[in-house]
C-alpha cells in the first residue's frame, strides 16, 4: 500500500522497524542471558528434574483441557438452542448469560472463596475449572450465537424436512458448519485457562495441585530467590505456548480478530 516512498520516508520506516524488532527481542535476550548465570544450561535441567515442574504442566493441561471442553460444549449447545431451535426464554437467557461478559473474576472473590471452603474443594482442579468456565461461557455464547445467526435458515429447514431430529441436526449440520467459530472459542478459552493466575493463587496451595503460572512463585517461596532458575522456568513455561502460536499463527490471529468483531 505504501510501497512508493520518498527517501526520508524509507529511512524513517526502516529505522522504526529495526527499533520495534529490538524492543520485542530485547527482553527475550536478557532473559536467556540471566537464565544461564551460575550453572549455565544445568539451570534448565535442574528446573525440570528437581522441581514438580512436569506435575505443574500436567495440572495446567488438565485444567485448560477441561475448561475448553466444558465451555465449547455448553456455548455451542446454547447458541444452537437460541438460534436454530428458537428456544423458549431464549431472549431472557441470552441477556442473563451475556451480562457476565466483561466481569473480572476478582469481583467474585468472596462467594467463590466461601463456596470452595464450605465444599472442601481446596487443591481440587474443579475449584478452578468451574469458575473459569462460568466466566468464559458468556463470550462463547455471544460469538457462537452471532455466527449461527449468519447461517441461512434453509439449511436447517432442509435437514429437518429430511427427518433429522434435534440432536442429528446439531451433530451433523450445525457443528460442522460452525467449526471456524468453535476454533475461536477453543483458542480463547485455552489461552485464558492456561494463563490464569488468580484462581489457582486462591485455591491451589499444595505443590502437587499447582499450575504453570505458579512456578515462579515456587522458586520465590524457597528461602532465597534462585533468580537464574526463575528465568529458566519462565522460558520453559512460555516455549510450548509460543510454539503453538507459531504453528497455528493464522488460526490464532483469525481467532482474535473474530473474537473482537463477531
Amino acid at each position: 500500500m505504501f510501497r512508493h516512498q520518498s527517501t526520508t520516508g524509507r529511512v524513517v520506516s526502516q529505522l522504526l522497524v529495526v527499533v520495534l524488532l529490538l524492543v520485542l527481542m530485547l527482553p527475550l535476550l536478557l532473559v536467556v542471558r540471566e537464565s544461564l548465570k551460575g550453572e549455565g544450561w544445568r539451570n534448565y535441567v535442574e528446573v525440570v528434574a528437581d522441581t514438580p515442574f512436569v506435575r505443574f504442566f500436567l495440572n495446567s493441561l488438565v485444567i485448560a483441557g477441561s475448561t475448553v471442553a466444558v465451555v465449547t460444549a455448553v456455548a455451542m449447545a446454547a447458541a444452537y438452542g437460541m438460534v436454530v431451535l428458537r428456544a423458549a426464554f431464549g431472549r431472557t437467557s441470552q441477556l442473563a448469560i451475556v451480562a457476565g461478559l466483561a466481569l473480572p473474576g476478582m469481583a467474585l472473590t468472596v462467594p467463590l472463596f466461601v463456596t470452595v471452603q464450605r465444599l472442601g474443594l481446596f487443591d481440587s482442579p474443579i475449584a478452578v475449572i468451574l469458575p473459569l468456565s462460568g466466566l468464559a461461557v458468556p463470550f462463547g455464547v455471544l460469538v457462537a450465537r452471532n455466527y449461527l445467526t449468519g447461517i441461512p435458515g434453509e439449511i436447517h429447514e432442509a435437514a429437518r424436512l429430511d427427518g433429522a431430529g434435534a440432536w442429528q441436526l446439531f451433530a451433523r449440520i450445525v457443528v460442522p458448519l460452525a467449526r471456524p467459530i468453535m476454533a475461536v472459542i477453543v483458542i480463547f478459552t485455552f489461552l485464558a485457562a492456561w494463563n490464569e493466575y488468580f484462581l489457582p493463587l486462591l485455591f491451589l496451595q499444595e505443590h502437587s495441585a499447582q499450575v504453570v503460572t505458579q512456578i515462579p512463585g515456587y522458586f520465590q517461596s524457597e528461602r532465597h530467590i534462585d533468580l537464574p532458575k526463575v528465568f529458566a522456568a519462565n522460558l520453559l513455561i512460555s516455549l510450548p505456548i509460543v510454539a503453538l502460536y507459531l504453528v497455528f499463527q493464522r488460526q490464532v490471529r483469525a481467532g482474535f480478530l473474530a473474537g473482537a468483531i463477531k
Binding site: 449447545a77 446454547a78 444452537y80 438452542g81 436454530v84 428456544a87 468451574l130 462460568g134 462463547g140
Partner: peptide, 24 residues
C-alpha cells in the same frame, strides 16, 4: 420444540447463573 430447545441452553444458563449471578 421450543421448550425442548430450552434444554439445550440450560447448561450454559446454569453455569453462568451459578457462578456469576448467584455470586453477585
Amino acid at each position: 420444540a421450543r421448550l425442548a430447545g430450552f434444554l439445550w441452553l440450560l447448561p450454559a444458563l446454569v453455569l453462568v447463573v451459578g457462578v456469576v449471578h448467584v455470586g453477585i
